[in-house]
Every structure is written in structure tokens, then in C-alpha cells.
């Protein structure tokens, strides 16, 4: 199994498209960090304009934690696309290029191959999130320095600097879980397709589509919303709540784990009996 995973990783990192993801993240993080460096005061003014009359703000508000939090918010829109770009290609790409004929005529099991590909895709997703975390915190530290984190949603939460790192750690870890769900979905679509465009676009379209439906039609869907995986993709934000946020984390993790297992299970079931016609 380790051998198969290392082969799949080698294939992933030999393809130019793999580096599009890392390149995009580097560009976006740098753009946001330098943008905030230049226009941060204006941006903060807009964010706190409704509350500045009632609170006194002291210290370094625009600090590395705030910037990292903003980047987290921004990049969870992009990272699923970048994950799908690679994981959606993992099975469909082999079908499209005809290389299944080479590898599936070797004495390896199809189940092991699917698992190895999924693990390799997952490692790629983890690396994307890790690069995002390291860059946003690293550059943020150099440009802005630490400070207390101010989170303004429908209420104002202030986290002291020594209470923030574990929250970021949790948010990134949960982000990895969310990206694993995205990877599992695109992987499933990839098993059904013979070229990678369909699974990549399909994954993004499904995530956006289901999110819109479940947001706009929340009242219509009612309790069903609680079981739709897209409802839980942004649940990393629970780490930046002070009250009951973390108590719902277990439910979010469970739902995502069920979807990951389900998507992967169907992929294995289908791929095991798939006729390789390409």
C-alpha cells in the first residue's frame, strides 16, 4: 500500500497542474496580506464602524491573527476548486489517457489502487491547507506581528493572543476534514467519468449549488439541512465562537465522516466492477 501511495504521489507531483494550486494559494495569500498592509486601516474602519462608538479599541487590531482569519474566510472558497483540480483527475485522468490499461494489468488490486489514489489526493489537500496556514501565519507575523483577535460576525468576539493559536490549529484541522469531503466527492465523480473536466466542474458546481439551495431554501429544507454536507464545510468558524459553537463540532465532524466514508465506499464499489473501455 505504501508503495502504491508513493507512486501516486510521484504522479501527482510530476504534473504541472498540481502546482497551479500551490501557486494560486501563494498569490492569493500575498495579495491579501499586502492589500491589508496598504489598506488595512480603511478596511477595519468599515468593519467596526457600527461598533466603534460603543467600544474602545486599543492595541494592534490589524495583526497576524486577524489577517490569517480573513485569509481563512477567503480561501475556503478557492481551496475546494484547487483540491478538485487534482482529485477529480485522479481516476478520470487515467481513464482519459488510457493508462488504466497499463496499471490494471499488473498484479495489484483495484481496491488498493483506489485507496492509494485517495490517500495521495488527501495528502495533496493537506499540503494545500498547510501551505495556506504556514504562509498566512508566517507572512502575517513578519508584516503585522501578533495581537488579540477581533472577530465580528453577528456579535463581537475578542480572543486574547494566547488563546488564539489552538483555535487556528482546530480551524485548519477541521478545514482538512472539509477538504477531505470535497476530495471524496470529486474522487467519486472521477470514477464515473472518462475525462477530468466533468468531475472538477461537477464537484465545484455541486458544492456551490447545494450551498445556495440549502442557504436560500433553509426554511424549506428544514431539518434536512442538518444532514447536508455542504452545511458543515465552513464549520471551522465554530472555533472562533465563545459560546456553544464547539458543542456542535462533534455533529459536524460526524456528518462529514459519514459523507467521506459514503463517497469513498461508492467509489470503491463502482470501480471494482467497472469495465475499462478507454
Amino acid at each position: 500500500m505504501r508503495k502504491l501511495v508513493s507512486i501516486e504521489l510521484f504522479k501527482i507531483f510530476s504534473k504541472p497542474r498540481t502546482y497551479i494550486g500551490f501557486g494560486a494559494i501563494i498569490i492569493i495569500v500575498l495579495a491579501i496580506e499586502f492589500g491589508i498592509l496598504l489598506e488595512g486601516d480603511t478596511m477595519m474602519g468599515i468593519i467596526i464602524q457600527n461598533i466603534k462608538d460603543r467600544f474602545i479599541f486599543e492595541g494592534n487590531i490589524i495583526n497576524l491573527y486577524l489577517v490569517s482569519y480573513i485569509i481563512l474566510n477567503t480561501l475556503w472558497i478557492h481551496v475546494p476548486i484547487l483540491v478538485a483540480l487534482v482529485t477529480g483527475d485522479m481516476l478520470a485522468g487515467e481513464a482519459n489517457s488510457g493508462t488504466f490499461r497499463l496499471i490494471l494489468t499488473r498484479p495489484i488490486s483495484r481496491v488498493q489502487l483506489v485507496l492509494a489514489k485517495f490517500i495521495a489526493g488527501w495528502i495533496y489537500a493537506v499540503m494545500l491547507v498547510a501551505v495556506m496556514a504556514i504562509l498566512s501565519i508566517g507572512i502575517g507575523l513578519v508584516l503585522f506581528g501578533p495581537g488579540d483577535l477581533l472577530v465580528v460576525t453577528n456579535k463581537v468576539n475578542v480572543f486574547s493572543a494566547n488563546d488564539v493559536l489552538w483555535r487556528f490549529g482546530g480551524a485548519y484541522a477541521y478545514g482538512i476534514l472539509s477538504m477531505t469531503t470535497v476530495a471524496a466527492l470529486s474522487f467519486l465523480l472521477s470514477a464515473f467519468a472518462d475525462n477530468s473536466i466533468g468531475p472538477i466542474i461537477g464537484t465545484v458546481a455541486m458544492i456551490i449549488g447545494i450551498t445556495i439551495i440549502s442557504t436560500v431554501g433553509a426554511s424549506l429544507l428544514g431539518p434536512v439541512n442538518k444532514y447536508i454536507f455542504t452545511s458543515y464545510l465552513p464549520s471551522w468558524q465554530l472555533f472562533f465562537q465563545t459560546d456553544s459553537g464547539l458543542s456542535t463540532m462533534g455533529h459536524a465532524i460526524l456528518i462529514q465522516a459519514i459523507y467521506i466514508t459514503g463517497f469513498l465506499g461508492v467509489t470503491i464499489w463502482y470501480f471494482r466492477k467497472k469495465d475499462i473501455l478507454s
Binding site: K3, F10, K11, S14, S97, T99, R101, L102, R106
Partner: peptide, 18 residues
Amino acid sequence: DFYNYLSARKNLEILGKL
């Protein structure tokens, strides 16, 4: 059909490992 982005040697090494 092969992994066109890899050399012949790398292609064979992958298949050999399998």
C-alpha cells in the same frame, strides 16, 4: 498510452514497482 509527462524510464520504473 503512457504518462506522457514522464520519461520512458520513469514510466517503466512506475510499472516495474507495481
